[in-house]
């Protein structure tokens, strides 16, 4: 479970204090599929980054699996990120100098390497639909293929949570639908997914939709899965 307790993240911009996330509280149950929608600059990405421990809140607590993650030291926080959370980012997030197979195996090396076997990585590439791209470099892949490899990489350590920031941002609608189907399959295996998106259509495929506006969060609607 992820829980945000009265989270505020403030930035100074031109001498003016701006709350990118303003006193937000949220609970995400295990196995949920949540979509976060909102205009650009509304604080969606900041909120997801707070959930994943990529940035420290100005005030408030971030609980992951019952642990306040900002009470952990750097090493413990890094281990939590590698073992419990998988990230999918906007645009390509693959390391350009590594092959797809090595990209997929990379997070496992930070988590001790037990799950970083070639067989496991290849089976994930097969799961996401790019089994023939193991030895290809990211530059040889289309945008959709790169996103699939990134999803395989996010799954390598079998995390309980996937945080996806605009995972279909620059993809055509067919590839977008394929990626969404992939997320639904992952979610069906019990993995919690929090997905940031601009698209109300994509958000409609999630179980819960949250709306960010000027750093505040509100529940939009509930759809049946």
């Amino acid at each position: 479970m992820i829980e945000l307790k009265n989270i505020t993240k403030a930035y100074m911009s031109g001498g003016v204090k701006i709350n990118a996330v303003d006193n937000v509280s949220l609970k995400v149950a295990d196995g949920e599929f949540i979509a976060v929608v909102g205009h650009s600059g509304s604080g969606k990405t900041t909120m997801v980054s707070l959930m994943g421990g990529l940035t420290k809140p100005t005030t408030g607590n971030v609980m992951v699996g019952g642990t306040d993650i900002w009470t952990l030291d750097n090493k413990q926080l890094a281990l939590l990120r590698s073992e419990k959370i998988g990230f999918c980012f906007q645009f390509s997030s693959l390391i350009p100098t590594l092959t797809c197979l090595d990209n997929v195996r990379l997070p496992a090396s930070f988590a001790g390497g037990q799950r970083g076997g070639v067989e496991h990585a290849l089976s994930l590439l097969e799961t996401v639909g790019v089994p023939d791209k193991a030895n290809a470099y990211p530059s040889e892949l289309s945008g959709g293929q790169q996103r699939r490899v990134a999803i395989a990489r996010a799954l390598i350590n079998e995390p309980g949570i996937i945080l996806a920031d605009e995972p279909t941002g620059d993809l055509d609608e067919y590839t977008e639908a394929d990626i969404m189907e992939l997320f639904e399959q992952v979610n069906a295996r019990g993995v919690t997914i929090v997905m940031v998106t601009h698209s109300r259509n994509l958000a409609a495929r999630a179980v819960r939709t949250l709306v960010m506006e000027n750093g505040t969060l509100s529940e939009s609607s509930k759809t049946s899965s």
Binding site: A78, E83, F110
Partner: peptide
């Protein structure tokens, strides 16, 4: 960006 991504994947500061 690459260094940030590595940290997101679990790389420590020491790494």
């Amino acid at each position: 960006r690459e260094l940030g991504l590595l940290q997101a994947m679990g790389a420590t500061r020491a790494y």
